[in-house]
Design a protein around this nucleic acid. Structure first.
Length: 253
DNA sequence: ATGGCTGCCGAGGGCAGA
């Protein structure tokens, strides 16, 4: 069973690329972030025609998450329970006995901004909710755009980024606290090439120069990690015309 | 060097992303 995550930076623009990618990579589950579409505009029929059911939670202009699945999506949850949030950043569903949680973690903008405080509070609420989810669902996968590069090895120029949003110590501490719930970073369960990233700035030919960050992750519970067979970052969509700035991450369970 | 692209909304540039 393959599970994937992809921040598409507008599903309206990227739908053809998503459909092409699914045709070439017929994963069981694909989590999307930054769909930037209201639910009324979500391309449910196009995805169904491609063999994928979907659940989604979107809004105009910003944010928006979705889970696409070949099999039925049960026990659908929108948002973090008890955490009041206008922003559509979380959707979860149970698929084939696996609790799939799709997240678009706030960016934080800069460490001295209100958005950074919101990011840290949001991550704390996520952690608290997931502690209960893990007790309920031993087979759990947390996929998405975390907007955190957990280690310096996930950053093309750690010195330049030191203390910055996406790499700051409080954010990394929040990432580690997710691991402490009993989750594993599936990418790091396997030998990987150095300088493996999932996002590259659109500017300054960052992709061509591989000036990127690894901020899209698939964390999996111990029960899933025990039989996880691989995790890869698929850079090919980043090479297309008009790409998303993020590229898919795929775990094979 | 704080920009550099891209998408959004909506009709021109400003905001946000990371």
């Amino acid at each position: 069973m393959k599970l994937a995550t992809w921040n598409v930076n507008s599903l309206k623009v990227r739908l053809p690329q998503v459909l092409d990618w699914l045709a070439a990579n017929p994963v069981e589950v694909l989590c999307l972030q930054e769909t930037k579409q209201q639910d009324a505009d979500f391309p449910q029929a196009d995805l169904l025609a491609a063999g994928y059911q979907s659940v989604f939670s979107g809004q105009k202009t910003y944010n928006g998450v979705a889970i696409l699945s070949r099999g039925p999506l049960d026990e659908v949850q929108f948002g973090i329970p008890g955490f009041d949030d206008e922003q559509k950043r979380v959707i979860a569903a149970t698929i084939n006995g696996v609790r799939v949680v799709c997240v678009y973690v706030p960016n934080g903008q800069s460490v001295d901004s209100d958005k950074y405080q919101y990011k840290l509070k949001w991550l704390e609420a996520l952690r608290a909710w997931l502690a209960g989810e893990l007790a309920k669902y031993p087979k759990l996968a947390l996929l998405g755009d975390y907007n955190i590069a957990p280690e310096d090895s996930d950053v093309y120029d750690p010195k330049a980024w030191e203390g910055n949003v996406l790499v700051s110590e409080p954010e990394r501490q929040q990432f580690r606290s997710l691991l402490q719930l009993g989750l594993r970073d599936s990418f790091r369960l396997f030998e990987q090439a150095e300088k493996s990233y999932s996002w590259w700035d659109y500017r300054m030919m960052a992709f061509r120069r591989n000036r990127g960050l690894r901020i899209d992750h698939i964390l999996i519970s111990e029960a899933l990690a025990a039989k996880c067979r691989g995790c890869i970052i698929d850079r090919t969509p980043r090479k297309l015309e008009r790409p998303s700035d993020h590229t898919p991450v795929v775990a094979e369970l």
